[in-house]
Each structure stands twice: as C-alpha cells, then as structure tokens.
Design a protein around this nucleic acid. Structure first.
Lengths: 348, 348
DNA sequence: CTGAAAGCGCTTACAG
DNA sequence: CTGAAAGCGCTTACAG
C-alpha cells in the first residue's frame, strides 16, 4: 500500500491538512514544520497521488494530444507530426505537464474526442491532425477546453505553422535565378483550413508574377493527398506536355518523393533533366540521390511555440490567433542551373 | 460544471450507487432501471470522471511509456521505436487503455520513473529505451509495476524483440550465395542486455561457420553507437585493408547509412564495388540509391505482441520471458553477385 | 433489486 | 502557525 499524507501525519504528529500544506509549499506553515514533514515524506518514499489531487483541484497537469493523420497513414511515424510532438512534449514537461494520447475509440466504448478530454480531465489539448473537417476535432476547438493546433488552421483557437507564402515566393525566385522559366508547382490538397496547400500555391502565383512569368495552368497540379503516388502522378502529367517544365516546386517532400520515383521510371536524371525544390525537410531528404533541396520546417521551434501558446491559453493569458515560423532553405543537390553556361552544377 | 452521477440520481429518482451500478452494467440492477438511467445519462451528456474512479478502483486504465532513446537522439522521431509505439497504442486502446508518456523530469520536480508511475497510477508500462544500464528503468522493471520491454532484454520482465541470430546466419548465407567470401560485419554496441548487437554478431559468426569461411577479425567492426558516423567509420577501416570486404552485413540501417555516405566519399559505387545487407528496414531504406536490401522488423507485430503481453501481465496471467518475432528480407538493390559471370545485377 | 454509509487521497475554507 | 470539518466524484460492502 502506498504512503499517504495520513501516514506522514501519523509519523510526524501533524494533521493531514498541515502535511498537505507543507508538501505544497504553502506560505502559512512554520519553517521547522515544513522541514520536518518533507524529511519524513522523503524518508517514507511518499509520492503524491495526482488523481486525488485532480479531483479536488480540478487541475490534472495532463495535456491531451489528438494525433490523427489520415493522409499518409503513418500514425506516430509521421515525420513532421512526431517531430513537433517531441519538442512540444519537452517544453510542456518543463512546465510540469505530461502528454496523454486522446484515443478515438477506447475498447468497446465510443467516446468523442471532447468527451474523452473531459473523461481524463486534461488541462489542454494539442491538435495534430490532417483532416480539416473532422467534426469531433471541430467540437474540441469550439469547446472551453484550451487547445492549440499545429497543422490545420482553426478560427476558434491558436494555430502554429511555418510560413508558407513567403518562402514559396522565394522558391520561384530561386528557380528563376537558376535560369528556369518553365516552373511547375505540385500543390497539396486545397481547402480553406489546410493552410499548407493553399498558401504555398499562393506563394507560387505571387512568385511567378514577381518574376514576370505568365501563369500556365498546365504547370499546376493539385494533389489529392500529400502522398508519394500523387507526386508521381503530377510528374507523369507534366511530362506529357509538349513543353514540359524544367523545374518543379513541390509543396511537400512526400510529393517530391513521388517526383523522384516517377523520374526514375521515366528515365529522367535529376537534377540534369529536372530541378526539384521542395518543402519540409523530412528525415529522408538528405538521403535521396541527389539530396533534396528543400525548405526546412523547424519542428523544434514549432513544437516549442505550440507548447508555450497552449500554456498561455490554459493560464487565461492572451494568445495569438496564428503564428508562422520561418523556414530555412536547405540546399542539397536537386536544383541545377538550367543553361549549362558554366560548369557549376549548383548555384548559391 | 460537469454532470455527475448525483445529477443523474436526482433526475431519475434513484440513488447514486444505483446509478453507478447501472452505468457500469453491474448484474444486480433491474433492466428497466438500467435503461432509464443510461437514457438520462446520455441525454445529460454524462462523462464519467476517470480520476475519481481510479481513486476507488485502483485501476487507471493508463499505460505509461518510458521512451528514452539516447543513441540516435531522435526522440519520438526514432524510426523503430515510434512504429512499435504506434502499433502498441492501437492494440491497448482496443482493451480500453490509454498511453501516457512518463516524463523523466517534470517541472522543477525530480521524480524517478518508478515514482512517476505511482504518481499517475499507471496500470502498466511499456519500456522503449536504448540505455541498458539506466538505473531508473532497472528500478521499474524490478518493481511490482507490470511492464514489457520492446528493445532491451531485462531478466525481470517480458522482452519482445525481433529474431536476431537466425536471420543473421541467413544474411551471411545470402551473401555467400551471391559469391561473396570476404564478408564483413558491422556489429552494434555489445552488451548483455542489448540483444541486437550481440545476437546479430553471433549469427554472423555462425553464418561464417556454416559457409566454411574462416573468421577474420579484421572484418568485424564493433560500433560504439547505432549511428551513421559509426557506420561510416567502419567502412573507412575496412577499406584500409589490403584485401577489403566485397560485402558488408550491417546490424542496423543507421549503420548502413554510414556505409553509404562513406562509400560516396571514397568514390565506391554500390553495389558494384560493395554489397550492403542490413537490418531494420527503416523509413529511408527504400529511398536510398541503390535501395537498401535489409531484414525488415515488423513494427506492427512487435507493438501488438508487446501490448498483448503487457495486458496479460496486468491481468496476472502467465507471460513469456522473451518473445522473438521473425524478420523478413526485403530485397532492393544493394546486394549484387560478386563474379559477374551472368549479367544479372541481382539474384533471387 | 435498491440505498445508506463509508471511504479512496487529497485540498479548501474556516476557526482558533 | 495548525487542525476539524467538509467535499471532489466515484464505488464497495452491507443491509434490507
């Protein structure tokens, strides 16, 4: 049987409330008393029962994570989500919180995400999902449970993502600077809440304009999912054109992976026959051949800021509606100057 | 304020205990009563408070996960651990359990893993760590908290890993079958509890013997860590030999990654100049060039079996001490017949 | 089949 | 500075 404050009370001669206050560093306790009590508590190996505390304080020190990734279907293996979650976890632990996964179906019992949050009494929730229209997630963000979203943009809560539009403009400029004029774009799924698809495409449009390149709708492919097969399909389409693109800007590395495999199938050599620029910097990007040049999303920063925003919400402090973290171009070998005037295979 | 069983009691006219029993499907409740109570509960949006239940039942329906990966330092991004955890999670959720991360340091408070388990009252613990000698983990497996380990082998509890020795014997045979005679091995760190390093090396030895190849100690490199730089270092060493290996069997994909990068640095072409066979089938293996031929660890099975074993332990049922799951050879392009007698670059 | 009593481990007013 | 009383939301004997 575990040691309780009653056991400590008995051993020290103080009452349970006094023990409780001493252990919680309440101010109205004599110094000697506090010392005595904590010494005995340590000696007896006392560990507080957080469940009992939660019952009376209404504070569980638990953060739920709704982790639902339907697109790539990698679950916790999802390369972006798990990086964010890892960093988020470290940051909230500093604040004394712990992470619990909010399950969708628990045993036989069907419980909504929101009910589930109440069931466990979580103090807040991190939303890491890819389905913008999931009713149950919508119910959570619309509830009084503090939340933060690190992918989908919800009006009702704080959303933390990377910057999308600006780097996408820069992406086009970068390829333009390498001499490319036929620059294609593989956009991710487009819907109002999934910022990545929409905002990166917007950057593509603006980049084209900034470079004075007229928009050619045949050079835009909108992927149905953020998956490799969709990326491959895009390249097959592009290659059917009489005047195919010499460079392609992919809105995610998973899509770029599809471009790589399609290129191999088509006998195209990268980057000689096609420059590929991407977005994410997944774990695999550096191992590809050629290494993928891509805008890196900083998962550590993304997770940390999400955590800080959520803690603010929990504490009732003011919060941003949307935070966008800068990305960083990681140059590897997949982009090449178009006209081989010089012998350089890559340019700064 | 949340709806409690008192509210339901009031509305239905029954007592709280009766409401409790009805909602928990206890047998000694009238059918009409049960129906009435559950209808009202549903109507009022009742969600049980699991914390309060835990206090009296001493069952939290919480499984802790000790996730500590010191080698590669990828945290939750660790490609093998997170795959196992994902599958484990799905399986325990079917049983009604949820996953909570057991933090090492929570806020200012320093709490051991074991104390932490008690603090949250977890019903069991999944151990996914890479440091065999972590005292705190040792304390957990030696305690009365039910546990299962999915990497390090602990005498005190159930360990679930893939098969190591048999496939490693097969690995040598496979390379032998391709005509290789100078077969090197990059072993992982060797210690009694980290089965992977030791057992795979053992398989290498046995495989050599089975093929009638005398063991040459210069062809064995023991990596200090399961990391890419260690794999690279191994190849640099091997290449300094007067008679370097024509094939290398790596005890993990991370090590193989190092071999790939060192090969590139050295100007070696894979698989023409060196056949590489590996173990794991990480996310990256298929994207390498050439694709990595490797023994796949089935994370889904590993996670599922770990979950089932832990549930058995929690329920006081008999458990295996060690379970080993078969691996599967995934042939891609990194192994080649040594003597190019035929034009085939890959063999069955 | 149903309910009054007690208690799980803790904290919060409140009185002294 | 310390403690008696009450209660958080729930379940478990036990009595009827």
């Amino acid at each position: 049987m575990a040691v309780t404050i009653y056991d400590i009370a008995q051993r020290t001669g103080y009452s349970p409330p006094t023990v409780s206050k001493a252990l919680n560093n309440q101010p109205d306790i004599g110094k000697a008393t506090r010392l005595k009590i904590s010494a005995v508590a340590a000696e007896m190996g006392y560990v507080p029962n957080q469940g009992a505390k939660t019952l009376v304080t209404r504070k569980s020190w638990l953060i739920g994570v709704i982790f639902q990734e339907i697109d790539v279907n990698l679950g916790i293996e999802h390369p972006l989500f798990n990086g964010i979650m890892d960093s988020f976890k470290k940051r909230i632990e500093q604040e004394g919180y712990e992470l619990i996964f909010i399950a969708r179906n628990l045993g036989q019992r069907k419980m909504s995400y929101l009910d589930h949050c109440r069931y466990r009494g979580v103090d807040g929730v991190l939303i890491l999902n890819s389905d913008s229209f999931d009713d149950e997630v919508l119910e959570v963000v619309g509830s009084d449970v503090p939340s933060v979203s690190a992918n989908i943009v919800y009006e009702e809560t704080t959303t933390v993502t990377c910057q999308n539009t600006e780097p996408s403009i820069e992406a086009v400029r970068f390829l333009f600077g390498l001499g490319h004029r036929r620059i294609a774009h593989i956009a991710g799924p487009l819907n109002a809440k999934a910022s990545a698809g929409l905002e990166r495409r917007e950057g593509y449009f603006q980049g084209l304009k900034a470079c004075g390149i007229p928009y050619d709708e045949r050079l835009l492919y909108v992927a149905e999912h953020w998956t490799e097969p969709c990326g491959a399909e895009a390249l097959y389409r592009f290659r059917q054109l009489a005047d195919p693109p010499t460079a392609v800007f992919c809105s995610s590395d998973l899509l770029a992976l599809g471009v790589y495999s399609a290129a191999r199938t088509l006998g195209l050599e990268l980057p000689r026959d096609l420059s590929v620029l991407s977005f994410d910097d997944n774990y695999v990007a550096r191992y590809l051949n050629p290494g993928l040049t891509t805008y890196r999303q900083d998962r550590v920063v993304l997770g940390r800021i999400s955590a800080e925003q959520l803690v603010r919400r929990i504490n009732g402090q003011a919060c941003e509606k949307r935070i966008q973290v800068p990305v960083q171009l990681i140059e590897r070998g997949s982009c090449q100057r178009l006209v081989p005037a010089s012998a350089n295979s890559s340019t700064q």
